[in-house]
Amino acid sequence: MLLLVAVLSSTLLYSQKSVNNYAYVIVPTKFEFLKTADEYQLNSLSKFLFEKYGFTVYMDNEVPEELLQNPCNGLKADVIDHSGLFTSKLVVTLTDCMGTIVFESKEGKSKDKKYKVAYNEAVREAFEDVEALSYVYDGSAAEVATVPVVETAPEVKTTAVVAVVPEEKTAPNKELVNSEANSWIAKTKDGLNYTVYNNGNTIVMELLYTAIPDVYLIKGKDALLYKNDKGIWLISENDGAQMKTTGVMYLTFQ
Results as ranks from 00 to 15, higher is better:
residue 192 L to A: 13
residue 173 N to P: 03
residue 235 I to K: 10
residue 141 A to K: 12
residue 184 W to F: 08
residue 138 D to T: 08
residue 167 E to Y: 09
residue 190 D to W: 00
residue 120 N to F: 01
residue 224 L to T: 14
residue 186 A to E: 11
residue 201 N to E: 15
residue 216 Y to S: 05
residue 118 A to W: 02
residue 160 A to R: 11
residue 156 V to K: 11
residue 151 E to L: 12
residue 194 Y to T: 01
residue 216 Y to V: 05
residue 169 K to I: 07
residue 156 V to I: 10
residue 234 L to Q: 08
residue 113 K to E: 08
residue 134 S to R: 12
residue 173 N to Q: 08
residue 220 G to C: 09
residue 113 K to S: 13
residue 109 K to A: 09
residue 225 L to F: 04
residue 189 K to T: 05
residue 231 G to L: 08
residue 183 S to L: 09
residue 216 Y to Q: 03
residue 111 K to H: 05
residue 140 S to K: 15
residue 129 D to E: 14
residue 148 P to M: 07
residue 163 A to K: 08
residue 146 T to G: 01
residue 217 L to Q: 06
residue 118 A to Y: 03
residue 171 A to W: 09
residue 216 Y to M: 04
residue 209 Y to P: 00
residue 209 Y to H: 14
residue 159 T to P: 04
residue 163 A to M: 08
residue 184 W to K: 07
residue 142 A to G: 03
residue 203 I to T: 15
residue 213 P to E: 12
residue 218 I to E: 01
residue 139 G to T: 03
residue 155 E to N: 11
residue 221 K to L: 02
residue 141 A to W: 12
residue 212 I to F: 14
residue 176 L to H: 01
residue 197 Y to A: 07
residue 230 K to M: 11
residue 136 V to P: 00
residue 132 A to Y: 04
residue 126 A to V: 02
residue 126 A to G: 06
residue 116 K to C: 00
residue 194 Y to S: 04
residue 205 M to G: 00
residue 119 Y to M: 12
residue 202 T to I: 11
residue 193 N to S: 13
residue 239 D to F: 02
residue 109 K to I: 05
residue 178 N to T: 07
residue 134 S to H: 14
residue 182 N to G: 01
residue 235 I to H: 10
residue 230 K to W: 08
residue 155 E to T: 13
